[in-house]
Amino acid sequence: MTDNIPASDETARVEAAAQETTREGTGALAVLNSSVGRNAGLVVALVILCVVGAATAGDRFTSTDNALTILRYAATIGVVSVGMTFVIIGGGIDLSVGAILALSSVWCTTLATQQMAQDSTWLVMVGVALAVGAACGLVNGLLIAYGGVVPFIATLAMLASARGLAEIISNKKTQIVQVPEFIDFFNKEILGVQISIYVFALVAIVGWVLLNRTTFGRRTIAVGGNPEAARLAGINVKWHTVMLYVLLGVCCGIAAVLLIARTSTGSSTHGLLYELEAIAAVVIGGTLLSGGRGTIVGTVFGVLIFSILTNVFVLNNRSQSEQQLLKGAIIVAAVLLQQRLASRNSST
């Protein structure tokens, strides 16, 4: 309603001197609030986890093999999380990622698809997985942007139906991949690291460039930050929203490919609770659930933290239940911290 800062000459001069300092403040919260600081916080969390891992599991944790195992696990969830980052920055949410992944994995491992792949090339399977993911994302996006269904409900419906369809197609049976070229390609090692892991790295880099260096990324931030202002500035908010969900759908397709390569199977039970892990990774990485702000680097850290946590629990033979409990606590802590940072932002 009123101006936050009077535009008197004096303040103008003082503030011009501090031009580049967009946000001032003291104390630990302010440090955590800068992008470097926030990532530093994540690095600290990561280091602590590694120390705990090394102390409790010793060589089994610190071995190169274990590191690669962690990364392979992280790759699947990580690709989904990068896509999820875009949707959340754009002001949405997608609960259906695990189900889309399952449907993609089933569709691209049906006998018919595999037959086609054997007749031509294994890339057919990759194409099918991406197309199924994109189609599911398109349905989500259209329902949300043009149908006016809130994202929570639209994607909840997709969560149920995509997995249902996956069960119908697969008849609830695990489908074994009979195309060795497919499996071999993603498990091939370059410099001792599997292709799957390179795929994750590539998706993260492309995601970072897309968010920070392209019109698409800029518009995503605008649409999530203030949809009405974005619309009045001439951005086609609805179409952009659709594209965000399609992007995430494609990411689910990529993740499905990586998961199939890791397990040699397509199954309607793939990707269970991936929505939880992906959203948690994004939030822990510092992306605001209210939209308009977030980073890919943070998300990658979030994914690594969760993956290492899982690994440390498994190495110590701790139960899945304990793992879930701790993960829940971490999510709450991350959101509480985020809210304090957000309220601090709006008051400066």
């Binding site: 392209t214 019109t215 800029r218 605008a222 930050g225 009405e228 202002a229 951005i235």
Partner: peptide, 28 residues
Amino acid sequence: SQGLLLDEAVYRNVTVSSLGAFSRGGFL
């Protein structure tokens, strides 16, 4: 509430309607 992206930088608010003029192949 309708005109500005308050938390975004000034330049981003100025260019938000003309992003095409600053991009080549989508890169800004």
